[in-house]
């Protein structure tokens, strides 16, 4: 029998430390898997390159827009239209409007999300207000165009795609970063 309990216990302490690390390792692992399979509805937050793609006029897909402001803040935030019918392969522009109704300046960050999940990687955006922080003066209204296309590889069963944006207040974080640089 294993006759050194102390050493055995130390080995188990190492395993414990290892599992603590494993918990942290799950973070990059999760992000890698999600990116690889495009499975959490996350959309690229940098501009996509759109080469010349053949437009598929035989197919029409409805793209719906959902806008949310996080944490019950009173800002106004909407898309100029609730939905748009598109042909895969063609670029479209849709304007979003946001108003800072509060009495002070703020910095906001929009986080996009796409449903169904397997449409996410086929939604390509060349321009989006979600690529960067947006600064709003007190009471300022902004018009923010989004330029996007659905690539023709979009799974055949998908006839409706929902693109949702949530605006978060990131003023504190942005201030800290500015001070840092």
């Amino acid at each position: 029998m294993n006759s050194n309990p102390r050493r055995h216990a130390l080995r188990l302490v190492l395993v414990t430390a290892g599992m603590f690390g494993f918990g942290y390792a799950l973070v990059p692992l999760y992000n890698m898997l999600c990116d690889a399979f495009g499975i959490n509805g996350k959309v690229a937050t940098t501009a996509a390159r759109v080469g010349t793609v053949e437009v598929d006029r035989s197919r029409t897909v409805t793209v719906e827009f959902v806008t949310t402001v996080n944490g019950g803040r009173p800002w106004k935030f909407r898309a100029e239209q609730a939905s748009i019918d598109v042909h895969p392969g063609q670029l479209y522009t849709v304007n979003f409007y946001a108003t800072n109704t509060e009495g002070h300046d703020l910095v906001a960050q929009a986080v996009p999300q796409v449903a169904p999940w397997d449409a996410a990687k086929h939604l390509r955006k060349t321009e989006c207000f979600c690529f960067n922080n947006q600064t709003f003066k007190a009471g300022e209204e902004k018009r923010m165009p989004v330029v996007f296309m659905l690539d023709p590889e979009l799974p055949a069963y998908v006839d409706r795609v929902t693109l949702s944006y949530t605006f978060f207040d990131v003023t504190d974080v942005a201030m800290q970063q500015n001070r840092g640089t």
Partner: peptide, 29 residues
């Protein structure tokens, strides 16, 4: 031994998300 440390990790991430500016679970970050 296998899973209590994972819970400890998860709640530590919550702690740093709230007080130390990490964004493990914060969508805006």
């Amino acid at each position: 031994i296998a899973v209590m440390p994972v819970l400890a990790g998860a709640v530590t991430m919550l702690l740093t998300d709230k007080y130390f500016g990490t964004s493990f679970f914060t969508a805006s970050g």
